[in-house]
Amino acid sequence: MDMMSAFFRRPAAASILSLIGVLAFYVIIGGVNLANLALAASWVNFAANLGIVALPVGLLMIAGEIDISIGAMMPAGSMATAIISGYYGLPIAVGMAGALVLGILVGLVNGLLAVRTSVPSLIITLGTLVGMQGVVLSASVLLTGNASVALTAPEWAKFLFGHLIGGSHQVVVIWWLVLTVLFGFVLHKTRYGNWIFAMGGDKTSARNAGIPTRGMTILLFILSATCASFVGMCQAIQFNSAQVSGGMDYIFNTIVSVVVGGVLLTGGLGTVPGVFFGTVTFAIVNQGIYFTHINRNWANLIIGVVLLIAVAMNESFRKLALHHQPGKTAKASPS
């Protein structure tokens, strides 16, 4: 019992329960064979691409901000790589650097606007989202006369960013796992993580306590935009081409993953394991439905239900954690 209640007080609890719930639903109602679903490439690849973006967005949200410009940064990253190294034929390293620098620049703009103005970051990044879509489309048409550009990456780049492990799993899965460990370490083990929580809890108090809140905010925006363009870059290398469209799905998909993962939309609370399991849950709902007898069209309904249940669970687990007093666990009602 004590172990159970300790589990429920963890911010990642709801996402793990959501995952178990979804799996149970698919097995019982959908007739899924768990052995087939377990590490199926379809959802693992989907989760990896989504997860690399969800991690920094989760950190931003814990710090009390949000970034939806990632929806434009994915195609921006892949187009930058493809135009520089595919259309102009420069070395792939230049194209990759171009994609990442673009991410840094847009993140810098987002971050500077967020700390210099009182405009909510949702609006700021909505602006850069739409703006970057225009830039990417115009640049692509002006420079190449096309909205889709081919790219042939050399062997080493393919190996690092765009080959299929065992013919099925994209190499970005490794990147996702490494980044998860890295983000988890920074958020939960270092002082910088403490700063991020404090910023999301109360920005003014955090600044008065000597935390460089402005620098941290800018850094987090740079991280999210760069991670998004990194995913775009990997996709261009993987699929040997880049398109100006796409990426918009990622906006809502990351927010759902992060929120199911127990991150508080208003900041101050969340975990990296939570975001990880939130992403896995989302990917399994979205891709695992193909393993069931259930019609694909129902997937979004399931996602909606999972989101609401997970948020409700997060809410009640948070109350449980707030009122938890060691040695007083037998108390009936926390009032």
Partner: peptide, 20 residues
């Protein structure tokens, strides 16, 4: 209290001057 409601006592006590 000017403290951070969702942080632990130990973490909020040392915000900005975390012992490492």
């Amino acid at each position: 209290g000017g403290t951070f409601p969702l942080m632990s006592i130990g973490r909020s006590f040392f915000v900005g001057v975390e012992p490492t």
